[in-house]
Design a protein around this nucleic acid. Structure first.
Length: 609
RNA sequence: GGGCGUGUAGCAUAGUUGGAUAAUGCACUGGCCUCCUAAGCCAGGGAUCGCGGGUUCAAAUCCUGCUGCGCCCGCCA
């Protein structure tokens, strides 16, 4: 709890100095207490034992007494005295508990303005976040979803943290994958595609279990898959595709246009799916841009000047990275082919240099399969005097029976998952509220609940942890899920509806609210726990953004929802026709934080469900 | 062969730079809707934190060896 920490730290420092115990790096030891019942911050006194020649428990007791003394005797420390509710020594720990009234004061003033509640002050820092950037060769599947959801959540959280964010999609508009798609669109008829896929024992265009007719990503992926099948059988296709790839890498306009025409409808279809998840981009940058404007050629020239440069027999060029800590079968990083053309990674280097001209800090979201490549690109960037980006890696999403692959057709499509999630959510709403709400309202609730649940299910686990997709988990609507958090929010909203129905103006009550007229000493524990959680809200946001670990914030929001639910049970805002304005103010602070927190995670904060 | 990551109750996960009785959800047992939405709340059972060493007053956390799983080691993207 930073606000509390900042007040305590200098005071504790002075007391430790008085006791001659300040030659340890004790600042780092002052941390959040494990058990909320024991305090908000704790200082373990074990390290002092040796130098003080006293038992840790005795030291803690002495320090506790010194602090109590300081609180009562020093008039200058009013803020300290106001903030510190209780100090005690237990089992060698010195525990500090924040004063509930002070907590309330801090939390309520920080969250009284709905515009700024639950956010951090504007920093002006420009952050460019590149994520998703999936090859536009087929519908968005759940395996790709982790990148998009992780990336978009980092985008959203950075915005909440006051940064100026730009979300970019790097469009692979050249190279083999699009070339195969373009070749297929040009050379294969629908009948032929069907015949090829059936012959290979694959699902044909019309054989799908779900109906996504007319959605180009779903249609064209069959062409892509059929071309891949053909390529195995007929090497002349490989050559044709190879020629297209070569021309695209030379920036040949006609070929790039054909590629564009082939993939753009697919990309649009993918973006439609992403849009349903609340994922959008500020900019699309095409890979070909850097070939056409000559920056790739320039980068290759500069790389040639590196002392690490080597040349293969056929003239291909590479950097020898053994001295940079790269090991394995090959330590060579090729940046130019024998024919002088560039490689994907080389173009990525150009892209990064350009990205640096657009921002102060740079974040990439990449699958763990890109770890080596990313390291190579980072070294190469430093070789040419540029800077490496910050990269967030994630582990792949697998299906219970293996890895997903668009090429092989072993996938769960996001469109299908979202439909299923919506259907299941609809079943729940209509069961609970079928006799209160009209169909249209329930449909929109189901859409929000379904999509939010899918997002949360993926974002709540640490990126570097392996993830196996299971339907029953993806569609969980109970504790530990997005609907659980959303439900807390609707509860807070329902209170406002209740006040409104009684003709009570909540805004009026709140503007006249004076904390000083309330005695918080006998407040329910659940209320204090909620205040404590709200006081941790900015810390959770800041930490999550700083470490690029959105699951930490997801976890915090879950805890906030739990605390709110308990508060809701214990602290009735309307009781016997009377409004408890303190409770109302706290409920509103929590509502704002939950709402903004939901936005940060891409969960839709419904007002009723 | 080498590198990177991961292994926490039956299952899925949390555990910021080492700190108190390892937290949460699902599942399991029992209780709570004349009361702001029960998609909720309360109580209970369930863990040799992969295995062995080491560092420390203190290790799920740090070091080391082993082991299971994942990813990578293309003049592919």
């Amino acid at each position: 709890m930073k606000i509390f920490h900042d007040i305590l730290l200098p005071q504790i420092g002075e007391i430790l100095a008085e006791q001659g115990l300040d030659n340890l790096p004790w600042e780092r030891m002052l941390g959040n207490a494990r058990e909320a019942s024991q305090g908000d911050l704790a200082l373990p006194c074990f390290p002092f034992a040796k130098m003080a020649k006293k038992a840790p428990d005795a030291i803690a007791t002495i320090l506790a007494a010194a602090i109590s003394e300081r609180v009562t005797s020093t008039a200058a420390n009013t803020l300290f005295a106001e903030a510190l509710g209780e100090v005690n020594a237990v089992g060698g720990y010195l525990n500090f508990k924040a004063d509930p009234t002070w907590l309330a004061k801090m939390v309520l003033s920080a969250n009284s303005n709905p515009e700024t509640a639950g956010t951090l002050p504007t920093t002006g820092e420009k952050v460019l976040i590149e994520h998703t950037s999936a090859n536009p060769n087929g519908p968005f599947h759940v395996g790709r979803a982790r990148n998009a959801i992780l990336g978009d959540t980092i985008v959203r959280l950075n915005r909440l943290a006051g940064h100026e964010v730009r979300a970019e999609y790097y469009v692979d508009d050249m190279g083999k994958q699009v070339a195969i798609l373009a070749w297929a669109m040009e050379n294969l008829s629908k009948d032929k595609v069907n015949a090829i896929l059936e012959g290979a024992g694959r699902q044909s265009i019309d054989g799908g279990s779900n109906n996504w007719d007319g959605k180009a990503d779903h249609e064209r992926v069959s062409w892509y898959q059929a071309a891949n099948v053909l390529k195995e059988q007929d090497s002349s296709i490989d050559q044709e595709v190879g020629e297209m790839v070569r021309l695209s890498e030379e920036g040949e306009e006609k070929v790039l246009e054909a590629f564009d025409a082939a993939f753009q409808p697919v990309l649009d279809g993918m973006l439609e799916t992403l849009g349903r998840l609340g994922i959008a981009f500020d900019a699309f940058t095409k890979e070909s841009k850097f070939v056409i404007d000559g920056s790739v050629a320039e980068v290759m020239d500069r790389l040639q000047a590196s002392p690490l440069r080597g040349v293969a027999e056929n003239g291909a060029q590479y950097l020898e990275l053994e001295s940079k800590g790269i090991s394995g079968k090959s330590t060579k990083f090729f940046f130019q082919r024998g024919d002088g053309s560039s490689l994907y990674a080389t173009r990525d280097i150009s892209y990064h240099e350009w990205k640096w001209t657009q921002c102060d800090s740079l974040v990439n979201i990449l699958g763990e399969d890109h770890k080596l490549q990313s390291k190579q690109v980072a070294i190469a960037l430093e070789e040419i005097g540029s800077k490496a980006p910050l990269v967030v890696f994630y582990s792949f999403i697998k299906l219970p029976d293996g890895k997903m692959s668009t090429r092989r057709g072993n996938v769960v499509y996001m469109d299908d998952l979202l439909e299923e999630a919506k259907a299941q959510a609809f079943a729940v709403v209509s069961e609970i509220r079928g006799n209160e709400l009209d169909n249209e309202t329930m449909q929109s609730i189901a859409e929000a609940v379904g999509c939010s649940a899918v997002r949360f299910n993926i974002i709540k686990v640490a990126p570097d942890k392996g993830f196996t997709f299971r339907w029953e988990e993806a569609l969980s609507f109970e504790g530990g899920s997005a609907p659980f958090i959303m439900y807390s929010h609707t509860r807070a909203c329902s209170i406002l509806r209740k006040l409104d129905s009684k003709g009570i103006d909540a805004a009026n009550l709140l503007s006249a609210f004076d904390l000083a007229s309330f005695d918080l000493s006998a407040s329910p524990q659940s209320m204090v726990d909620l205040l404590r959680r709200l006081a941790l809200h900015p810390d959770a946001l800041a930490d999550s953004v700083e470490n690029n670990r959105p699951h930490q914030f997801a976890n915090h929001l879950l805890n906030l929802a739990i605390n709110y639910n308990t508060f809701y049970r214990d602290c009735h805002i309307v009781q016997d026709g009377e409004v408890n304005v303190l409770y109302l103010a706290i409920s509103e602070a929590a509502r704002h934080c939950i709402r903004r927190g939901c936005e940060g995670l891409g969960i839709i904060p419904l007002t009723q469900m």
